[in-house]
Design a protein around this nucleic acid. Structure first.
Lengths: 248, 248
DNA sequence: CGTACATTTGAATTTGCTCAAATAGAGTGG
DNA sequence: CCACTCTATTTGAGCAAATTCAAATGTACG
């Protein structure tokens, strides 16, 4: 279903699709070799839980292909997604033994895992890994804060538009595409997952998707394939600055 | 007003109140000396803006005393607080030249600042600084994700209770106090700041504070001094697990 | 005492939620 | 290929929570 799934497991880091974006991005050849010694691949099917919050976590790793989500759940079942893990994103926290969130594969996922103890040891000796991890963590913190604005202050319609523009942007940056004019992409999330991301109910998500479609902001082919005729209109709907920032 | 303000500016890191929690926490004596060379103190009065989003930022630093807030503002004026900076918290991002958020002093604030270029240089050579910064950033990311649950899924009443329990917890950890039985602390935020933190209007904040008071969950002396007769009741109201986690 | 500002409270309105039912697809077995 | 099932999605109607607008009250400071 996903073309990424057809990739045979990369044994060689130098041919890895996320080589230049993942936690190993800054590593030199000799540093990569040491990482190769402790790495192994794991596959998860769509819907499968990678790890439960509170479970002992004896590995860390990177998403190689597919999408996973980080969620928190309250006692009465209310759930909030707190992270969307795309290829190259890092899973796990050095220095912590148990998982803080549920990690669930949204699509089929391949992860490049490292046993935690050796990874932590290696991190001590390899500044390039720690440096890259700091950079990635700072980026995630920015993304989380951006999302706090969405969750706290935006209307349902703006929330949907924000999610769509974020996915469009990340998709474009993955495919090196420009975000001018019409943009087309897949939205690999169910209405329920979108709701959990945005702090809405799935009914409200569905209603606002219909409204955006009716108003010509987006076009749907099937449920998951989306076309945005004019990206600047979508950004306007999201309540973001329209000027600049179209690329990246 | 705040007793921290009476501290005469510490010149000597070894007597600094945040010595063991700030970005310099892991530094050895010789590393501290190099930090001392590039550090300077700045004071901000309550209400004063430390830096505007988008401005050039030529320093990074730590909050020594007082409280500052990180906020984002939309074009139409809606604002969302995305961080609450307490003593020892770090301000600024190595590797970035402009501020991403507005930073505003909520109370009078003293900051220990480092010129950005020398600090970044020092960070390259001093793993202890980068290590500590990574740890602090990961903690902030956890806090931000916790807050995403509050913003996305909690009711107004639960949001208020969550904020109060967070402030109570941080206050207790600062004062090495236990969180069993009754707890008393100052809430250094206006109703509007609380609203900006929680994604509510100030009227709703006021109403819910009144409701919690009427229901005996909290007691107010003046507007800002709060007593929680039974911490576990407050945690229950916040929708968090009641069991465990009382200390920390 | 008067001004400025923070807070509280009230009443009407709106947004998004809950509950309920209809519709649309995708996959399965006959 | 069709009927059937399962799940995802859409749509509707009434409701509840939080917002908006408005006014009153309280508090600090000159």
């Amino acid at each position: 279903m996903l073309n990424q799934n057809s990739l045979s497991v990369a044994q060689d880091c130098s041919e890895c699709p996320i080589r230049h974006r993942a936690v190993c991005a800054r590593c030199e050849t000799d540093e990569l070799e040491r990482l190769e010694d402790i790495k192994y691949y794991r596959r998860f099917e769509a819907g499968q839980t990678v790890i439960w919050s509170g479970d002992k976590m004896d590995f860390v790793g990177s998403v190689v292909s597919g999408i996973a989500s980080l969620t928190q759940t309250m006692e009465d079942g209310r759930t909030q997604m707190v992270g969307l893990l795309l290829p190259s994103d890092f899973v796990g926290r050095p220095g912590r033994n148990t998982a803080a969130y549920d990690v669930v594969a949204t699509t089929d996922v391949v992860m490049c895992c490292f046993r935690k103890a050796p990874f932590e040891e290696l991190m001590e000796k390899t500044p390039h890994i720690a440096q890259r991890l700091l950079q990635m963590t700072l980026d995630e913190l920015d993304a989380a804060r951006e999302w706090m604005l969405v969750l706290g202050r935006k209307t349902a319609r703006e929330k949907i538009a924000s999610l769509l523009s974020i996915v469009a942007r990340r998709d474009a940056s993955l495919n090196m595409a420009r975000l001018s004019g019409a943009v087309t992409f897949d939205l690999p999330l169910t209405r329920e997952a979108m709701a959990d991301y945005l702090g809405l109910t799935l009914e409200t998500v569905s209603r606002q998707m219909s409204a955006l479609r009716k108003d010509g902001v987006i076009t749907l082919e099937g449920k998951r394939h989306i076309t945005v005729p004019d990206m600047s209109v979508l950004l306007e709907e999201a309540g973001d600055d329209t000027d600049g920032g179209l690329l990246v």
